[in-house]
Amino acid sequence: MRVRVRFSKNGPIRFISHRDVARIFERALRAAGVAVAYSEGFSPRPRISFGLALSVGFESDAEYLDVVVAAPVDLEALPGRLTAALPDGLAVEAATPVAPGTLSLQQAIVCCEWEIEVLNLTEAALARSVTALLEHRHVMLERERKGKQTTVDVRPALLSLNVTGPTADGVRLAATLSTDLVTIRPDEVISLLGHDARLGRARRLKQWTMADGQRLEPLAAAALRRETTHVRDLGPPGSPAAQTAAAGR
């Protein structure tokens, strides 16, 4: 049975890496007595797959993992049992069985909502920068990938940006950023908001999948019966995204 779990990562533990979180969950599952299924082979590995990586230093209310269990587990009790086995700052909020045929987290997530703290800009200045940025039809961003400079138009990844008020040290920016096809990270958003803007705290609030043209929370997506779903907006048939999605099923 595959189980999908939602968890949060807050406080000082935000400084550990994605790999660290993976190792911690492997240990917590064992300490909680959950019988995780293992891969076959010379070096058997527990069958746990994580969703999108969360950068070191970012907090989140909505992280996900899928785990294949070898024996039935009490899903109602699972969040409490796992949270008790997890270090301070990591907490499992909910768990649900994954219906057969559900897309993997990596394939299914299309966008994330963020709360980003912007330092060094006034609220008014940030609002002006955001408005100006969104007026552009193309926003070119330079990235280094494997030592190579590339330029990407990240405008399609900026689904929404709204200034929502002050924080203790700066201004709060609510952002919805695509993770599908064209992606952008919160620190890259800051780099587009002018010379002075600095990133403060950043927290992922939600991750979304798509079903029937509607945004759907990943646990809800896992619970859906497959024959009625995967009407994810895949673009024209034969496009790379459509092929990936088809392969995933």
């Binding site: 400084f15 660290d20 070191v56 270090p87 301070d88």
Partner: peptide, 22 residues
Amino acid sequence: WPALERLLPQVQKPARYIGGEG
């Protein structure tokens, strides 16, 4: 901690400094 926390985003492997071990 409050002073340190502000510096950690600037360093490699900040998890070295947060404690919190089981």
